[in-house]
Measured scan of single mutants.
Amino acid sequence: SKICLVCGDEASGCHYGVVTCGSCKVFFKRAVEGQHNYLCAGRNDCIIDKIRRKNCPACRLQKCLQAGMNLGARKS
């Protein structure tokens, strides 16, 4: 099975251009559409994995963007 390129959980498919799990898919959509201005309490290098993905939305969003997630991406 495929793994989420953001948190490493089991992926549910290709979302916004990137193979991700459902949790990261929903997080990314809400983060971008809600125009959240997340700030990292650390050094913008928090570990984002299945267990810690909820700890720092700033670093999670950064990881989504680095993976290439794009709200305008067509479903493939």
Rank of each mutant, 00 (worst) to 15 (best):
S1D: 02
S1V: 14
K2T: 10
K2N: 13
I3E: 05
I3T: 04
I3F: 10
I3D: 09
I3Q: 04
C4F: 01
C4N: 00
L5R: 07
L5H: 03
V6S: 02
V6M: 02
V6Y: 02
V6F: 00
C7F: 00
G8Y: 03
D9V: 13
A11N: 14
A11W: 03
A11P: 13
A11D: 05
S12H: 06
S12Q: 12
S12T: 06
G13Q: 15
G13K: 14
C14G: 08
H15M: 09
H15T: 06
Y16T: 11
Y16S: 07
Y16G: 09
Y16L: 06
G17E: 13
G17M: 09
V18F: 03
V19C: 06
V19Y: 03
T20R: 01
T20N: 15
T20L: 04
T20C: 09
T20F: 02
C21H: 00
C21T: 00
C21P: 00
G22Y: 03
S23M: 07
S23T: 04
S23L: 06
C24D: 03
C24T: 00
K25M: 12
F27Q: 01
F27R: 00
F27N: 00
F27P: 01
F27E: 00
K29D: 13
K29N: 06
R30W: 03
V32D: 11
V32S: 12
V32K: 13
G34C: 04
Q35V: 08
Q35C: 08
Q35P: 12
H36V: 13
N37D: 12
N37C: 11
Y38P: 10
L39N: 13
C40L: 01
C40V: 00
C40T: 01
A41W: 05
A41V: 09
R43T: 13
R43P: 05
N44T: 09
N44H: 10
D45T: 06
D45W: 03
D45G: 08
C46L: 01
I47M: 08
I48P: 05
I48A: 08
D49G: 06
D49R: 03
D49Q: 04
D49W: 03
I51A: 12
R52W: 09
R53C: 04
K54T: 15
K54Q: 08
K54H: 06
K54N: 14
N55A: 09
N55S: 09
N55H: 10
N55D: 14
N55M: 07
P57E: 10
P57C: 10
A58Q: 15
A58M: 05
A58G: 09
A58D: 07
C59K: 00
L61E: 03
Q62Y: 05
Q62G: 11
Q62F: 04
Q62S: 10
K63N: 09
K63Y: 05
K63T: 11
K63C: 05
C64I: 02
C64Q: 03
L65Y: 13
L65W: 11
L65K: 06
Q66T: 09
Q66H: 10
Q66D: 14
A67W: 09
A67K: 05
G68A: 02
G68S: 03
G68Y: 01
M69H: 02
M69P: 02
G72Y: 08
R74N: 12
R74Q: 08
K75P: 14
K75C: 10
K75H: 15
K75D: 09
S76H: 09
